[in-house]
Nucleic acid binder design. Structure first.
Lengths: 297, 297
DNA sequence: ATAATCAATAATTTTATGGTATTAAAATAT
DNA sequence: ATATTTTAATACCATAAAATTATTGATTAT
């Protein structure tokens, strides 16, 4: 019959919401199952809202529970961020910027940004994480990341997006492939080949764009392998398992036995964009965005 | 030497940060001053950051304390909002409703429903997607849609269906066609014409119904074109490529050089129905169905 | 100097979290 | 069908930690 919700309830709730199993959740939390059951029940009483439906062997979230889970994830993430920030503030450091990125952004944009940031604000610490488009989207929404480097066009309400790098696509073929930049005439030449692509989950836009490139050339590509790492894709190409279409900038930084044939004439571009949350409270973000977009345009 | 920060700490912290006076803050919180002092000290230990400077008669916030105050206000505010929201969610008064529809529903039923929804529950967000009968069926089954507006009679187990709009059919002919509403006697007059219809995949029931209309008139129509968009069909008719049979309500919202001849005397009707999943957990759905079916019947 | 006021400390009480044992219901195995 | 296992909930209890009262030490006002 406690009056107030506490963060403890939130941690317990999240465990149950993720496991959907009281005993397993209790184990994960290193507390007893009855204790957990009672805390959750108490939480529901305080909030005057049922959060879980426990009927015959199954525990499921109610609509309110689903909604609350999202919000609690956000609040706890934001709190962790704040904990780190106040330490930095008390140390006289400005703050911290959490950056997510697709592997293909590592070649160009990220190093650029980091150099500029270090230059302008040596007190700012950055953390970098390679994540898929979608993982970044969720993390940015929930304050797990401050900015993300993604390939997409539309973002949910509350997020902002700005293109930062416009790249051509290139076909990646084994070094000994008979088609070269010199004798290359058009995608049609690759009609019969197996295509090795980044997986659709990783970046739907990339996938659709590659499809449209082939369709514009008049054929539907046979996709034999999908991967999330450029390294893997190049290795597959190297071993004659197919050809790939990737952003041209991926050429840098790898030393593989493959050659790039840049598709200069097609209209498709690999656009890398920054996303961030409109009402992100991190003061570092403003500075960062100025550096990123100020002199770009 | 407690492990975890709790919301209690936040409320205490805010009181002290606002009063800048432990005794007064304690009074405001209805707890004793020593209790408050110890909790704040504990909070500083957990966060490993000094938040207040207590020297000679004055209590002031540190830089970290100032920063934290802002964030805690934000977090507690957000939490209060969330508490209110989950109650609304569980009452079905807040949330999202994903609606699918055939293009031909856009003329009448959908705008009606949306207006009513907005009116009754301004906090409900809706998303709309134009999809074929079958795509809606699958999406509803997989919780991709909450409700769909389709033209069909039977639905798989687990789904529900209710007619919501009963429309006559009309023949659509070029504006300069020799048959008019005045001299129209029966479908038999169109025996020789090419027919332009919605494709069978899009709505099998519609297709079968149109066929039966012609068969009742004693002929089998020659179908020359199929489309999934009313716009396309009207354009084809406009260019003398044939005549169409469509639900009469499609007359609204288009400005094409065609005329509609309503088939009032035949028994066939273009029935638009809502489908939804029996055990859909979205609480918004109940309210929506009440609005849709409550005053209809 | 003395009184007053403040926050911190000490000792004690109260509260309620979390643990153990157990139950009721349901699923699974035999 | 019966026995066994598994699940979440209940009852009761121990104990950790929060809150209270009483007190101290320090600073400021009179």
């Amino acid at each position: 019959m406690s009056y107030q919700i506490e963060l403890r309830h939130f941690h317990y709730f999240l465990a149950v919401a993720e496991e959907l199993h009281f005993r397993k959740a209790a184990e994960r939390l290193f507390i007893s199952q009855p204790g957990l059951s009672r805390q959750i029940k108490q939480m529901e009483e305080i909030l005057e809202t049922q959060l879980f439906i426990r009927n015959k062997k199954k525990v499921t979230l109610t609509a309110a529970g689903v909604y609350l889970k999202d919000e609690i994830e956000f609040i706890l993430n934001h709190l962790e961020l704040t904990k780190r920030h106040i330490k930095l503030v008390s140390q006289g450091k400005f703050g911290e910027l959490n950056i997510g990125f697709l592997g293909s952004a590592m070649q160009t944009v990220i190093p650029d940004l980091l150099l500029k940031l270090k230059d302008a604000f040596p007190e700012i610490n950055t953390s970098l994480e390679e994540l898929s488009n979608n993982a970044q989207l969720n993390a940015v929404l929930k304050d797990g990341l401050d900015i993300g480097f993604v390939r997409m066009v539309r973002v949910p309400k509350g997020l902002c997006i700005k293109p930062v790098f416009n790249d051509t696509f290139s076909v990646v073929v084994p070094a000994n492939h008979n088609i070269t930049a010199a004798n290359f005439k058009g995608m049609k030449q690759f009609e019969g080949e197996n295509f090795i692509l980044f997986s659709q989950d990783y970046s739907p836009l990339y996938y659709d764009t590659v499809m449209s490139i082939c369709e514009d050339a008049g054929f539907t590509p046979k996709v034999s392998h999908k991967s999330v790492h450029a390294q893997t894709i190049f290795t597959l190409v190297e071993n004659n398992l197919g050809v790939a279409i990737v952003p041209t900038s991926l050429q840098q930084g790898f030393n593989m036995n493959v050659k790039f044939i840049e598709l200069k004439k097609i209209p498709q571009r690999a656009v890398l964009s920054v996303i961030w949350k409109e009402d992100n409270r991190n003061p570092v973000l403003k500075h960062c965005m100025q550096l990123l977009l100020g002199d770009k345009k």
